[in-house]
């Protein structure tokens, strides 16, 4: 228990200092390089099906990172990020199938559209305490499949049938099959987005975000425009999850309304908590959890993943509220005392 408090305190105190050189990085540079190299090497080591799963993992990691920006770092509880995931996925699919937009160009457009919708949804709820946003976003998530089935936009969305798209080939004559290429492509996109998030959070804006989370009144007294920063943060958060949705649509080669039920949002939330609230690396652990647990659990029963998610979610809330990332951080500090 005392170890946890010390670790948290260390991080909090370092985050206030302005000189980056004195700041202990959450993950050592060497570890990042090794992990990235390992991730790239996997392209040539595992089967196409596993590559597909890894691509989904990368997508979920970006989506959870997005959720983390709003919920973890800014304290805005969203139970509806699946909606932005759906927006991103449908944007990519519609652009590719109806407008012949190349797959890579759909990502920035998906980002913009998700950010706008995030802004519009966040705006009314963000003026109030956390539960109102949770409630509104939950309502949004429940309504999403019905909205996607809406007859008025059927020409674009394909109604109940959804849209089938095809996986892109590797460019420039690279000797990669589509699964390998898409995995590397996703990894690249995710790498950029993680870097950007890391920069955002350790900077001035990130500190303001956390100040709002920890003490809104004090943050306001310090001259932070709460409403502006919260809505913008929420828009960035939605943008991340939208891009992730677009990546996943390209990987799955198919979108349909019933793939975007409220449970997508809930699973992202589970991933957030299990990985670690307010932890960038936590997003990766959370994504791994929600990708691989169903594979194992579904052998037991169709209902088993939900039950396991539920039990683990509650167990984490009681026993390990800082998630897997928090646990690893504590272990790291214990093994390497000088890191404190």
């Amino acid at each position: 228990m005392s170890g946890e408090i010390t670790a948290e305190a260390t991080e909090a105190s370092t985050s206030i200092r302005t000189q980056p050189s004195t700041r202990a990085r959450p993950v050592p540079f060497a570890v990042t390089v090794i992990v990235l190299a390992g991730a790239v090497a996997l392209t040539f080591l595992v089967s196409n099906y596993h590559l597909f799963q890894l691509t989904m993992l990368v997508g979920y990691a970006v989506a959870i990172l997005g959720l983390n920006i709003a919920t973890g770092y800014n304290g805005q509880i969203s139970l509806g990020h699946g909606a932005f995931y759906a927006v991103g996925a449908y944007t990519a699919a519609i652009l590719m199938s109806n407008f012949d937009v190349p797959y890579w160009a759909t990502l920035p457009i998906a980002a913009i559209i998700s950010a706008i919708i995030g802004f519009l949804i966040g705006f009314p709820a963000l003026r109030f305490t956390g539960l109102y946003l949770a409630l509104t976003t939950f309502a949004l998530a429940v309504a999403v499949p019905q909205l996607l089935k809406f007859k008025g936009i059927e020409d674009w969305t394909g109604g109940v049938q959804g849209i089938v798209i095809s996986k892109p080939e590797a460019p420039f004559g690279l000797p990669l099959n589509p699964d390998q290429w898409l995995y590397l492509f996703s990894l690249g996109v995710a790498g950029l987005l993680f870097l950007f998030a890391w920069n955002l959070i350790r900077g001035r804006i990130g500190r303001a975000m956390m100040a709002i989370r920890d003490h809104a009144l004090a943050a306001e007294a310090m001259g932070i425009d709460l409403a502006l920063l919260k809505t913008r943060t929420f828009a960035v958060s939605a943008m991340y999850t939208g891009v992730a949705g677009a990546l996943s649509a390209i990987a799955v080669e198919f979108v349909a309304p019933d793939s975007f039920t409220v449970f997508v949002s809930i699973f992202l939330f589970v991933g957030l908590v299990v990985g670690g609230v307010a932890s960038i690396t936590g997003a990766i652990f959370g994504a791994a959890f929600i990708v691989f647990i169903p594979n194992i659990a579904e052998q037991v029963s169709k209902a088993a993943p939900g039950a396991i998610y539920g039990v683990i979610l509650i167990a984490f809330m009681y026993l390990m509220p800082s998630g897997v990332a928090g646990l690893l951080r504590r272990l790291y500090h214990r093994l390497v005392p000088s890191s404190r």
Binding site: I77, V270, A304, G306, A307, G310, V311, F316
Partner: peptide
């Protein structure tokens, strides 16, 4: 904190939903 409570509510939702399906 609120987030922990929401987590428990969502966990409960998942468990009950899975149980009925099971």
């Amino acid at each position: 904190p609120v987030l922990a409570l929401v987590g428990v509510f969502i966990g409960l939702l998942l468990i009950v939903n899975a149980m009925t399906g099971w």
